[in-house]
Simulated scan of single mutants.
Amino acid sequence: MTTKIRYGWRLFATGFSFFSFGLGGLLLWLLVFPALSALPGSRRQKVSRGQRVVHYSFYAFIGLMHRLGIMTYEIVGLEKLNRPGQLIIANHPTLVDIVFLVSRIKEASCIVKGSLWRNPFMRGPIVNAGYISNSDPEKMIAECAAWLKAGGSMIIFPEGTRSVPGKPYRFQRGAAAIALQAGRIVTPVTISCYPSTLTKAEPWYRIPERRFHLALHVGDDIALDAFAEAGLKSVAVRRLNRHLQDYFTQQREVYKYYGK
C-alpha cells in the first residue's frame, strides 16, 4: 500500500510540475518579459537579462521536482561550465535535459524547433533569451557561430531530438559545423538518467517505479586543431562529428547504470 501511495504521489507531483512549468512560461511571457523589454539597454544586454530570467526559472523548476520527490540529481565538473564563448555539446536522453543544463548555466543560448516559436508557453523565453531557430540550417549555423565568437555560451544536442532507448546515436553535423566555424571552447557534457524516464518513446505520465536520478558529467574540452587541419571543411566537419558520436557512445556505456 505504501508503495502505491508513493507512486501515486510522484505521478501527481510530475503532472503538477509540468503544469507549473507551462504556467510559469506563460506568466513570463505576459508579465515579466514585457517589463524587462522596457528597460534601457542594447539588444545584447536585453538578451542577457532574458537568459538570466530563464536560468533562475529553470533552477526553481529543477528544485521543485527535487523537493517533491520526483528526482535526485548531481553534477560532476560544474566548475568547467559558465565560460565565455563556450559551446556545450550534450547527449539528450530525457525531456528535462535542456532545463537541467540551463538551470546551471547563467547565460546560454540554444537551438529550438521552429514550431516552438508559436507555442504560447514557450514563446516568451525563446524570444527574450535570444534562442536560435533551426528552420534555416545555414542561417542557424551562422547565427550560432556569431554568438559564440561574440563571447556567448551555447548548448547544443547533436542528435537534434531525444535519444531512442536502445538505439545507437545518430548525430547531425550541425554541432560539428558550428564548433569549427566558431573556433571557440567546446565542452562535452554526458547526461545520464536512471531509471530511464521522459524519453522520446514515453509519455510524461509513464513514470518509473522510483524517483529517477539525473547526472551531468562535464568532460574535458575538445581540441579542434586536429580536425581543423583536415583541409576540406566538409571532411573536418565529418571527422569531428564522428569523434563526438564515438565519445558519447562510449560515455553512455560508462554511465549506463549510474545512480542505480
Rank of each mutant, 00 (worst) to 15 (best):
P120K: 04
P120Y: 06
F121H: 01
F121A: 03
F121V: 02
F121I: 06
M122H: 06
M122P: 04
M122N: 07
R123N: 08
R123P: 03
R123E: 03
R123V: 09
G124F: 04
G124I: 02
P125W: 13
I126F: 09
I126P: 00
I126N: 01
I126Y: 00
I126C: 00
I126V: 10
I126E: 01
V127A: 06
V127S: 03
V127W: 06
V127L: 14
N128I: 10
N128Y: 07
N128W: 05
A129I: 13
A129R: 00
G130P: 14
G130E: 09
G130C: 11
G130L: 03
Y131I: 01
Y131S: 06
Y131K: 00
I132S: 04
I132W: 01
S133R: 00
N134L: 08
N134C: 12
N134I: 07
S135I: 15
S135R: 14
S135L: 13
D136A: 10
D136C: 08
D136W: 10
P137N: 08
P137K: 05
E138K: 09
E138P: 01
E138C: 03
K139Q: 14
K139H: 13
K139A: 12
K139D: 10
M140Q: 05
M140K: 00
M140N: 07
M140A: 12
M140T: 15
I141D: 00
A142R: 15
A142D: 15
E143K: 09
E143W: 09
A145I: 01
A145D: 07
A146F: 10
A146D: 15
A146C: 12
A146E: 13
W147I: 09
W147D: 14
L148Y: 03
K149A: 14
K149Q: 15
K149H: 09
A150M: 06
A150I: 07
A150R: 05
A150Q: 10
G151M: 09
G151E: 04
G151Q: 03
G152A: 14
S153M: 13
S153W: 11
S153T: 15
S153Y: 15
M154W: 11
I156L: 06
I156F: 00
I156Y: 00
F157M: 06
F157Q: 02
F157W: 01
P158K: 06
P158N: 04
P158D: 12
E159M: 06
G160E: 06
G160L: 01
G160Q: 04
G160W: 01
G160S: 13
G160D: 01
G160Y: 09
